[in-house]
Design a binder for these strands. Structure first.
Lengths: 108, 108
DNA sequence: TGAATACTTGGCAATATTGCCATGTAGCAA
DNA sequence: TTGCTACATGGCAATATTGCCAAGTATTCA
């Protein structure tokens, strides 16, 4: 049983989900989608990025099943599929604060 | 206010934490450290990686404050600083299952 | 001392990620 | 039809990540 075999499965899948979340722009989109479905143009309006880049970020989230898309007219609306993801941020915030506290201690 | 300014701060910090977690090996280590402190050699015994690679993965976790290290004798013990991180996995698992369900539907 | 163990760090190559531009597709409106 | 809007995709360059090897430090033990 080699490394890739041992790491395949549960941990690989978890890492994929976390990697999909691990970008500021995608975190912003997930947070916004937590308030309700949004079209790509609405999400693009929140950032200073090319439409193609926004589209690719959304395809990353869609690729791991965190969001789904639905075309209505000539717009595409994205919906958050696992809203519990938003609760992750509570602990992440705690980690962030612990991190900042550590920095303070280092430079004291 | 450009993109980097708007994205700096909260979202950048959150993304850093999630990025530190977004690797199968580091997820394995975090899960193991959830059971208690472990020395580097114990963690290395769980994977098929060079000691230097294991050390670098741990330094990534340490860099964002998720773990701390303590030297005792000639061993270094790592401790999980934010055990609530383990609860993240509940929702990630839910996302994984939703993801797999989606795959099943696609290939049906 | 000297050697062995436990770990870290620097450097490098292979690979993955990110963002832009150019281009393509689908729906709507004239 | 033609043109316009809203997105998606391919390709590419810049950058980041990953893992190995080699070399370094610190501690223990003989």
């Amino acid at each position: 049983m080699n490394r890739s075999e041992r790491l395949s499965g549960k941990l690989e899948l978890r890492a994929q989900i976390l990697k999909a979340l691990a970008h500021p722009t995608r975190l912003l989109f997930v947070e916004e989608l937590g308030k309700g479905e949004r079209c790509v143009c609405e999400l693009q309006g929140m950032v200073d990025l090319d439409m193609s880049t926004v589209s690719k970020h959304l395809s990353v989230l869609k690729g791991v099943g965190l969001v789904t898309d639905q075309k209505r007219g000539n717009q595409v609306f994205y919906t958050l599929q696992t809203p519990c993801i938003l609760r992750i941020f509570d602990c992440v915030e705690q980690a962030v604060r612990a991190n900042l506290q550590k920095q303070v201690e280092i430079f004291r």
